[in-house]
């Protein structure tokens, strides 16, 4: 008996669900570092313009040994930590109030939106004039930069909570305070987190700018210092440290979000 010719049908959208192994993301970074190292070893670019990763690592080790690295890192972490926390807490609280009270919304929201577009670093000279040259102006400028994206996201998060859920809560006996705590806050949390992540990038930007303008210590000051001295290896230590910091910051927020929003 003859077998009929067959044409098997295969899944033509298999690429949509293709699983990529974990090592792939490590592969990219390692590849880039390797390429960078090779370019430097072959002397294609002079070391002053682009120091080799190995040289940067050696200098970083030295800076750790002398304590210089951690001194600057902690100075920066202190500023960004306090500034970020301050801005985030104020942003969330005020955003919740704006979203909840129509009066404050009508009065305060136009103010928020008119200050929001100002690049906050432009306010630094003024703030230094007001607060002196200590830690305060740097912390304040970071807090300001964090406050605005957080307040605006929190506000729209509150506004986007489905009114039917508020009706449901009230029907089942919730007081006003419980409506805020059990419905409005969890309902706006995804938007709040979007704001917090946006603010994370802003806070690092402002940190470094402020430290470059007015600081003895901190990663920004360190980068500028070695830039002036044309010691690019040590400059690059600061730059890579910032990249690491930003990465960790984002991962931390992502972890917290997964922890707090398992229902997403």
């Amino acid at each position: 008996m003859m077998t009929e010719p067959r044409q098997t049908i295969t899944n033509r959208v298999a690429f949509l669900e293709q699983r990529i192994p974990k090592y792939a993301s490590v592969l990219g970074i390692t590849g880039l570092l390797l390429l960078w190292e090779i370019i430097c070893r072959l002397n294609i670019v002079p070391p002053l313009f682009l120091p080799a990763p190995s040289a940067i690592l050696t200098d970083a080790w030295e800076m750790i040994a002398t304590g210089e690295l951690f001194k600057n890192l902690f100075a920066s972490l202190y500023r960004v930590g306090i500034g970020y926390a301050l801005g985030a807490v104020l942003g969330i609280v005020i955003g919740l109030i704006l979203g909840f009270s129509r009066w404050t919304d009508a009065i305060v929201t136009p103010i928020v939106y008119s200050i929001y577009p100002i690049p906050k670093i432009a306010l630094l000279p003024l703030i230094i004039l007001w607060l002196g040259i200590g830690e305060m102006p740097k912390v304040t400028i970071i807090a300001l930069g964090v406050f605005f994206p957080v307040v605006i996201n929190t506000f729209s998060g509150v506004k986007n909570v489905d009114p039917i859920l508020i009706k449901a809560a009230v029907t089942f006996g919730s007081s006003h305070a419980n409506v805020i705590r059990k419905v409005i806050l969890p309902g706006s949390l995804p938007m709040i987190f979007a704001g917090l992540k946006l603010a994370a990038g802003t806070s690092l930007l402002l940190l470094v700018s402020a430290e470059m303008i007015a600081a003895q210590q901190g990663i920004g000051a360190m980068v500028l210092h070695y830039g002036n001295l044309m010691i690019t290896t040590k400059l690059m230590v600061g730059v890579l440290l910032l990249s690491l910091l930003g990465l960790l910051f984002n991962r931390g927020l992502q972890w917290l979000e997964n922890k707090l929003l398992p229902w997403k």
Partner: peptide
């Protein structure tokens, strides 16, 4: 007296199991 409503939109809280 207490009331309960079953909503057309269901209106379960998405963040509660």
């Amino acid at each position: 007296p207490n009331l309960a409503i079953v909503f057309q939109e269901i209106a379960l809280f998405p963040w509660r199991n």
